[in-house]
Computed example of a mutant assay.
Amino acid sequence: MLGLQIQEVNLNNENEVREVIEYLSAFHLRFEKDIDYTILVKDNNKIIGTCSKSGSILKAFAVDSEYQGQGVSSYMVSFMLDEMFNKGIHHSFVFTKKDNREIFKSIGFKVLFEAEGVTLLEHGIYDINDYLNKIIKKYNLDTTVPKAALVMNCNPFTLGHKYLIEKASEENKEVLVFIVEEDKSSFPFEERINLVREGTGHLNNVKVIEGGEYIISSATFPSYFLREEDDKLKAYTEIDSGIFAEYFCKKLNIVRRYVGKEPYCSVTSAYNSALKHILSGGGIELIEIERLENKDGYISASNVRRLLKDNKLQEAYNMIPKATWEFLNSNKGKEIMENLKATDSPH
C-alpha cells in the first residue's frame, strides 16, 4: 500500500523483538515463544500493525484502530501468506478473536470452528474434508461401521497407552488411534507413531493414524489473546473436541472416544470433564478407563521420561512395551535419552 512499509523482524535481535512485545501489549496480546517469523507494518516509521507465524499458524495479529478498515490487515496477511507459500507452506490456520474473523474471510480464509471468544479459520489448497477423505482412502476405512477412537501423543509409548488401546479393541469392532503429529515432544513423531504401530500390531481391529493438522495439541494451541488460564483451557477444549465431534466423528462414524482417567493433573482432569460434556452433545460417548499401575503407581509417559532423564533406563523396563524398550537401546533411542538429560517436554 502507498506510503506503508513492511519490515521483517530479526527474531535474534532483542531490541526488535522488544519493540513487537511492547506494541502487542497495548492490545493485551502476548508474543509467544514458538513464533518463527514476524513482520511489522509502518507508516513513516510508526508501527501500525504486526503479524507473526509459528509453522503454519498465523498469530499475534494487531492493527492500530485508526488504520482498521483501510486494507492494512489484508495487506499484512497477504504478505504473510506469500511468505509461507515461498517456504512451501500451502495450508495455514489462524486462531483469532471473533471480532477479526471477517478480515480473514475477506481474503479467502474459511471458518473451521468457533468457540466462545475464539474463531479458528483455515486457508489453502485443501480443507478438513479433503484431509478426512484422504484418510478414508489411505486406511481403507468403512464409514458404515461404528468406531471407537483414541487421541494420543505417546511420548514415549508405554504399557499404559497399550492397555488403553487394548481395552478399546476388546470393546469395539473397529478402533482408530490418532497420534498427535506436532513435533513438540522429546520423541519425534515418526518414532512415536512407529512404536505405537509396532506395539499394537497384534490387534487386527486397530488402525494407527497420523493426527495431521486437525488434531490440535495443547502444546501448540495459540492462546496469546486469552488472558486467564481458565479461558485458555476452555477455548482449547471447545475447539479440540468440537472439531473432533463435528468433522472426525461425523465423517468417520466414530461413536466412542477413550481416555485414561487422570488421578494427578487437575488441568487434564478438567479437560476430560469438558470433553465429555461437549462430545455427549454430539451423541458421542466418552469412555474413561482407570489407568494401568504397577508397584510404583500409575504408569505414565512423564514418569518414563523422568527415569530416562535420570539415567535409570532399567527402572523404566516394567513401564514400557518391548518395542519401546528395543528402540531406547538403539542409537536413535540413546540420542533421545541424552537430549532428555538436558531438557524435557510435555505429554
Rank of each mutant, 00 (worst) to 15 (best):
E246T: 15
D230Q: 10
T237L: 10
K234D: 15
D231N: 05
C249W: 06
L226D: 03
F248G: 02
F244Q: 07
C249F: 00
Y236G: 05
D240Q: 08
V255M: 06
E246R: 15
S241M: 10
Y236S: 08
L226R: 01
G242W: 05
L252M: 08
P222I: 00
I239G: 08
K250D: 04
K251A: 11
F244C: 07
E229N: 13
C249A: 13
N253C: 03
S223M: 07
T220A: 10
D230R: 13
D240C: 11
Y236I: 04
E229K: 12
L233G: 08
E238R: 03
A245L: 14
I254T: 00
S223E: 12
E228M: 10
S241A: 12
I239P: 02
K232F: 09
L252N: 06
D240L: 08
F225D: 11
A245I: 09
Y247R: 12
F225L: 13
D231K: 06
N253R: 11
S223K: 14
I243M: 05
K232R: 14
K250F: 07
F244E: 01
G242I: 12
F244Y: 13
D240R: 04
E238N: 09
E246C: 13
L226C: 06
D231S: 13
N253I: 05
E238Q: 15
T220K: 05
Y224G: 05
F248A: 04
S241H: 03
K232V: 10
F244R: 02
L252Q: 00
K232Y: 08
A245G: 11
E246K: 15
D231A: 11
I243E: 04
P222C: 05
L252R: 06
L226T: 05
K251D: 02
S241I: 02
E238S: 13
A245C: 15
V255D: 03
I239F: 06
V255P: 03
I243K: 01
D230I: 11
N253E: 02
A245N: 12
K232L: 08
E238G: 01
I243C: 06
C249V: 02
I254D: 00
E228Y: 12
K234F: 12
F244G: 02
I243V: 14
T237I: 09
Y236L: 07
P222L: 03
E246P: 07
G242M: 10
I254W: 00
A235N: 03
P222Y: 03
K234T: 12
D230N: 11
Y247W: 14
C249D: 01
S241T: 11
E246D: 12
I243G: 02
Y236K: 04
L233D: 06
F221P: 01
E229Y: 10
K232P: 03
E228T: 15
E238T: 11
C249R: 04
I254Q: 00
F244K: 04
K234M: 14
K251W: 10
T237R: 05
E246Q: 15
E228P: 01
K232H: 08
I254E: 00
A245Y: 10
I243H: 01
Y247I: 11
E238L: 09
